[in-house]
Design a protein around this nucleic acid. Structure first.
Lengths: 211, 211
DNA sequence: CGGTCGTTCCACCTTTCGGACGATGCGTCG
DNA sequence: CGACGCATCGTCCGAAAGGTGGAACGACCG
């Protein structure tokens, strides 16, 4: 019997995960929390589980204090409590995925995954195996395959100003170079990122967290 | 007994909604679909319900053809089938909310709403009353209070696509309008935000969290 | 030493954007 | 009703941005 803990700030999603888990004969939900803090508190209090289902994005857009994020929570759970963490989240950006994987997540699934895939991922995680959702794998592979994703320092500087909304002329004056140089850098950036325009490059930069 | 139909592309969320609804003594789930098209097909086939729980953002980021959006589906259901629609979604942007309300949605809830609020909203919707989640109300009020910088729903939609890096032509095709219209919206956006270019507008939009 | 790479610049050309008009229809509100 | 905001389209034109194909210089490295 696999003991599962749920940590998600959406009551509806928690109910859904609980329904899926309890619908499996070989696993059960032993605890449920709505915040990462509560999850850590429960574990520190001696709570034991075989797998933690964790949502990234905890009450993210809130105007309150900067809450504990999913990535940090993942790292703490994995290292302090030696419990495998299966990240289950809605719209994972590349930055989110990388952060979670680097923090030691045992798996990463999107919430639109079918229930069988979720159950399989839980069993794999309990066994200590790493599983990534099909979408996630495709994303990571796409990242690996991209050839020249390493931008030079100068190119990053230009990209940062582009993301801030500056025009080529403004960037040129700001960096004390000619407009031709800025355009040259931008051309290289677009080639490396596989983008077609400055705005698209800015979008990709944000998505990948390269600011 | 209130008959409820679920339309959400996330199996886990569907399970959660089902659990909440079936946990109430006075309501039940009579049908479940994963796409807006299936929902309309079921209704056209004679399916009857007292309330439709609808997710905006259907398979949104997909690379496939432009699927039917939640707002359009809302309009069709409300007007063709005279059935109240309760929109239940994750992270509602102002554009989403305005679009759904304008399309005739009977209610708008975020998925992080507690289950009791959800149940209450379903009962209100079945009775024909309009209910908005606390968060949603606050958003709308905040939008009202803002003096001169209020972007229309359509403008926000354009701005969102600009922020995603799309070109005017791509935006036009995505929204089924002409390039001239997109440029017109963009001109208004730049006027209202005090910006000079699309990239600058995107930067301001991100900064002010209006996505 | 020669090769690669980053940075800087140039010219030429095409596409795209943005500004500045106007015009229509469609709702709402006083 | 008329004024207003919104969304939708259009044209014209100049400015900005992007594509191509260079070239020069220095740094670093095997």
């Amino acid at each position: 019997m696999i003991d599962v803990v749920l940590a998600d700030d959406h009551p509806v999603v928690r109910a859904g995960l609980r329904a899926v888990v309890d619908g499996q004969p070989d696993m059960r939900v032993v605890h449920e929390t709505g915040t990462a803090e509560d999850l850590l508190a429960w574990l520190d209090d001696g709570g034991r589980a075989d797998v933690v289902l964790l949502d990234l994005r905890f009450g993210g857009a809130g105007r309150g204090r900067p809450r504990l994020g999913g990535a940090e929570a993942t790292g703490t759970v994995v290292h302090r409590h030696a419990t495998p963490v299966l990240v289950v989240t809605t719209y994972g950006t590349d930055a989110d995925i990388l952060a979670a994987v680097e923090a030691g997540a045992t798996g990463y699934l999107l919430k639109d995954a079918p229930t069988e895939e979720l159950a399989r991922a839980i069993r794999s995680a309990a066994a200590g195996e790493v599983t990534l959702g099909a979408d996630v794998q495709r994303r990571l592979l796409g990242r690996m395959r991209s050839p020249g994703e390493t931008l030079s320092a100068r190119e990053l500087e230009v990209l940062r100003l582009v993301t801030a909304g500056r025009s080529n002329d403004a960037i040129a004056r700001e960096l004390f170079v000619s407009v031709a140089t800025v355009k040259s850098h931008l051309a290289h950036i677009n080639t490396k990122l596989g983008t077609q325009s400055r705005t698209e490059a800015a979008a990709v930069a944000r998505e990948r967290g390269m600011l």
